[in-house]
Structures are given as C-alpha cells and as structure tokens.
C-alpha cells in the first residue's frame, strides 16, 4: 500500500541523508520525494512510500522517524492506521489530512 509521510526537518548537515537511509532500511521504498527550500532553519519533506512487505507498519516507521534528532514533526496521511495511546491525543488534534504521528522530541 502506498502511503504518504510528511516530515518537518531541521536544516542540519546530513539530516536528509539520515532520513532517507532510515526509511529504506526499515523496509520502505521511496516512490517520490519532495523537499522544499529551508526556511527558518527547517524544511518540509514529503515522501510517497511503498512497504516492501505486508509486515511493515507505517505507524512504527513514523515513530522511528520521529526518533531522529533532526526531525521536528512527522505526519501521515493514513488516518485509518492504528496508533499507540500516547500518540492518540496528538492525532486527534491534528489537521484532517495530515495526522501528526509523533510529538516533537524537544
């Protein structure tokens, strides 16, 4: 299943490489990738992803992406995916299309 992920990324050295590497390594292929120019030290990356097998879970990936120190926010477009309780409140408060998958680390 193809799913979209939107990431708010700090404009830091290696941040994009780290993000792409993690997504690939965790079992997803990147079908498309769009990165806006950085503004106020941050940019937005939007990716369309395909899971390599049925066991791959987009919500787990979103949480793994959120662990990256350069990631300021993660949003998924898959509103039907199951989410962990600690994320539920964030999800409920998110915009209609893009659900914030994880609270910011710092």
């Amino acid at each position: 299943m193809r799913t979209s992920l939107r990431i708010e990324l700090a404009d830091a050295e290696g941040a994009l490489m780290r993000l792409i590497g993690l997504v690939e390594r965790r079992g997803f292929t990147i079908a498309t990738l769009d990165k806006a120019a950085a503004s106020n030290g941050q940019s937005t990356v939007t990716m369309m992803l395909d899971a390599r097998d049925a066991a791959r879970n987009m919500d787990v990936l979103a949480r793994q992406v959120a662990r990256l120190l350069d990631v300021r926010g993660v949003f998924t477009s898959d509103t039907h995916a199951r989410i962990a309780p600690e994320i539920a409140a964030e999800a409920a408060a998110g915009p209609d299309r893009w659900r914030q998958a994880c609270p910011p680390r710092r």
Partner: peptide
C-alpha cells in the same frame, strides 16, 4: 520507554 518499539513486530 521507546514508543517506536510498540507494535514493531507483534501487535
């Protein structure tokens, strides 16, 4: 302690 471990391999 790490939310990313929940549901990773077993729901």
């Amino acid at each position: 302690g790490d939310a990313a471990e929940i549901d990773k391999l077993r729901r």
